Simulated assay, not measured.
Amino acid sequence: MSTEPPTLLRCAGRTVARYTTRPDLAPDHAPRPYLHPVTTLAGRVVTEALPDDHPHHLGAGIAVADVAGRNFWGGRTFVRDRGSVELDDHGVQRHDGFKLCDPDGFVEELSWTAGGERLLREHRTVAATALTDSAWALDLTFSLTNTAGRDLSLGSPATNGRPGAAYGGFFWRAPKEATTPTVFGPGGGGGASGPAAAGERGSGADGEAAVHGFAADWVALAGEGWTLVFAGATAQTRSDPWFVRAAEYPGVGSSLAHAGRLAVPAGETFVRRVVTVVADGGLDRSGAAALVRKAVAS
């Protein structure tokens, strides 16, 4: 599925991820670089790519459903008053090259293009860091610059009329297993009792409904023999509500456009950093919080 061999990411003496830079995919998949498979240190695979339920889900990476009306997520496009429809509106994230590529990480330059026009330039940094003998961290920072020569904005199905579907930004598709994964957030995280507005943080409860649509320092997804803990590593990243799915399919991402579209004026840049703890076994709330503190500080 790639026009060149994947880039390997290593941590603690083993390969923990493969990064496909130029996937050979149909346009309606919104072709883009992605990490898959990503594994725990013991070798458990914790990503999924091209699953039957959502063939445009590609492991771990960056995807946005609406960039100035162009679909960089893949699949159908949600259109207000029409619903999800198949449109010829997909963009491509083109890998332009690595500025640095080491065994434990890389710095990459990308172009987001659609209809022959480059809308955004991306600078992406990915690094792997060992935390314990059973956990490591994937540190991903992306900065997007408006290169279109005019003001742009980013949207989501939610901003286009589909409630609860504010996905767009960082996204991690986990493997679907026989048992629905457990979801939980930080305890005592601020007592938010409804969908997050800008600046609200934390729900501090268990379950998909308790963390989806809230802004919190971190969110955990625990499956059969593995736990993923997703943490916002900057104040701006922590202000983005989390998009969480568990029952329908296992996936966690950020919501760049939650209550409204994200404006990106001509020439301006915005930056987000998400650090993901990848752990063998099950973590409780205190264990997840401890690893997040270590991961974000490293």
Rank of each mutant, 00 (worst) to 15 (best):
P186M: 12
Y249F: 14
F230L: 09
T159C: 04
D206F: 03
G225P: 10
F184E: 14
A231N: 06
G164S: 13
F214P: 01
L152P: 11
L154D: 01
W242Y: 10
G223R: 00
A158M: 15
G207R: 00
G191W: 02
W242C: 10
D217F: 01
K176N: 12
G204V: 04
S156W: 13
S255W: 00
S254E: 00
T237H: 04
D284L: 07
R173Y: 06
G232K: 09
A148N: 05
V211R: 07
E177R: 15
Y167D: 11
F184G: 12
V274H: 05
S153H: 13
S254D: 03
G155I: 13
N160C: 08
A257Q: 03
S153I: 02
F270L: 05
H258Y: 06
G282S: 12
A279E: 04
G251F: 00
L221Y: 05
G225F: 11
V252G: 00
F171Y: 13
F170I: 11
A290N: 07
S254T: 15
E208W: 01
A209G: 14
K176T: 10
A288S: 13
V183R: 04
T180Q: 09
D284C: 08
P175R: 11
G187C: 08
V278A: 03
T159A: 05
A246D: 03
S203D: 08
K176D: 13
G204L: 03
A266I: 04
T276N: 01
F230P: 06
G207V: 08
F230Y: 12
G188T: 05
A158T: 15
E200A: 12
F170P: 03
A158S: 14
T234W: 02
